[in-house]
Design a binder for these strands. Sequence first.
DNA 1: TAGGCCATCTGGTCCT
DNA 2: AGGACCAGATGGCCTA
Length: 353
Amino acid sequence: MLTRLFSEPSLIPEVQKFASWAEDCDDDDDDMSDKDEEEEKSLQDGKTEGSLSESKEDGDMMGEEEEEEEEEEEGTEELDGERPKKRGPKKRKMTKARIERSKVRRQKANARERNRMHDLNSALDNLRKVVPCYSKTQKLSKIETLRLAKNYIWALSEILRSGKRPDLVAYVQTLCKGLSQPTTNLVAGCLQLNSRNFLTEQGQESGRYHGPNSSFAMHPYPYQCPRLSGSQCQSSTMASSHALRTHGYYDSIYGNTSPDYNSSEYDAPLSPPLCINGNFSLKQDSSPDQDKNYHYSMHYSALQASRSSGHGLLFSSSGMRSGVHSENLLPYDMHVHHDRAPMYEELNAFFHN
DNA sequence: TAGGCCATCTGGTCCT
DNA sequence: AGGACCAGATGGCCTA
């Protein structure tokens, strides 16, 4: 019967392996001692022999004395074919009880592994929330999240090291280093930087930036994010809309005077980087790159203005209506926002010194 | 249909 | 010995 099962093409590989494995010990009795469990691992090697790692066959940790007591298994001889007779450990025959125990142990290991991966994914989700362009519904891939996080840390480190206001374009370039095109567009969109121009600048190093009077926010971005379509980033224009949309959370606090954006497009505020940008904004000097840093300025000052005045209109330092997305000002939720607030204040203090 | 991303299973290795 | 960690394999889902 096991032979039939083993030859059944529709069977999953595990069943096939298990069938061949169990067949080898079909004639075995069930009264083996518990110490046989020690060899379950060796037997599991045996069940995958010929398919997974043949090199492992000779590497099992069975004792030499047991080797002499055990007989060579028939199945192994078949699979080994013309290979020289193995000197390595022999595989113990499986009893039904041992098979059951092994199955249970494997299931437990699988469950642990699942939980471990879930924990890992949860940590990644948390990381997504603190890197630029966080969205609940449109998640960055794992690898992009890690890359963006690395770039983000690097960018912030450079800012702290230099103690100077960063150039927006350079900042975004740093953030997007090594990122895929869709993620680059998303980050640029979230930072309200036209990715087309940003990418051009990457090549030309022109450093030119669309100033507040430009229509950067409405520029259709050239790339449609593959996995973003239908959610946050049907195009990078959508990302711009995101950046400009007043979030409901912000609305509830500061009032809503923004157009009626589709709230389903983005269901979570952006992550801190834009807030970090705001930290640079309190320096309202008239540096030559003021235009480039326009958004750094307007984000934070807009927040300050709206907080102090109580109205929901967001104005840049020049008084122009910015239309800035409140998510740029507020992290993904109140809890995190409060947790991070001291850090922002420290950064503000740093940039005021 | 190919390619990217992901979840899961699995066996090996290392550590406690 | 058991658990954690890792990497390979596999299959599903989605999009271009």
